[in-house]
Amino acid sequence: MGRVITITSGKGGVGKTTTTANLGTALALQGGRVAVVDADIGLRNLDVVMGLENRIVYDLVDVVEGRARLRQALIKDKRLPELCLLPAAQTRDKDAVSREQMIDLTAQLRREFDFVLIDSPAGIENGFRNAIAGADEVIIVTTPEVSAVRDADRIIGLVEAAEKGPPNLVVNRIKPRLVNRGEMLSVEDVLELLAITLIGIVPDDESIVTSTNRGEAAVYDHQSQAGRAFLDVARRLRGEDVPFPVLQEQQGVLERFFGIFGRRRS
């Protein structure tokens, strides 16, 4: 039986979809059978981020309403045969799916896959509640900004109230140069405020823009710091003890190279 993991944040635009796409790809690269599910009904996005938008025939709502079987709606990734996408419906609204339907759907998916990653919509309404309904675990994505951290705290409370266990945290878009100057909340600051377990530190990285433009995951780009960070998150999810590398200010090639060997507290 696979693990169902929901990626959520409260605030929009902090990198939920990018995290889902990269984590899904990373887990599949590391040998897992992975399904990524776009639960943002009406605002379909995971398909374009993964470059699969031209292959959609059926969507999540078609499956839960019985117009398509799950296997017909699942889209195989371009490169990785063990990675599949279940796209959101684009023409329906958030209330097209019920909590029970989401739980049934995740129960079906976990029989076929090792990991089922659910990309949650922003907000704290039904869409979010449906997205965590069938989850075993929750990953919260935040950025080091006051608005995102505040919303993350709210979401943590709701996840704990729903008895989904203590969620894991990904701090996204860290800018080491600003942190060093004391002009951006550090990962330590965010952890002290939110008091949950850290599973990933992802630096702000321009390569995310270019990889998203092309519809390719950043984890394929060996130059991408963010890509490497997502590969690390995947390994930690699988239970490996991966130290958090010291983030380098993006400058010289040499610095980047030596940054790989720098280690923060283990």
């Binding site: 900004e145 600051d189 405020l193």
Partner: peptide, 19 residues
């Protein structure tokens, strides 16, 4: 004060109020 520490102080107050 550095803006990061201002942000942290403000967040501490806001989160206590939210919770």
């Amino acid at each position: 004060d550095r803006s990061a520490s201002v942000a942290k102080q403000r967040l501490m107050m806001v989160l206590v109020d939210d919770r």
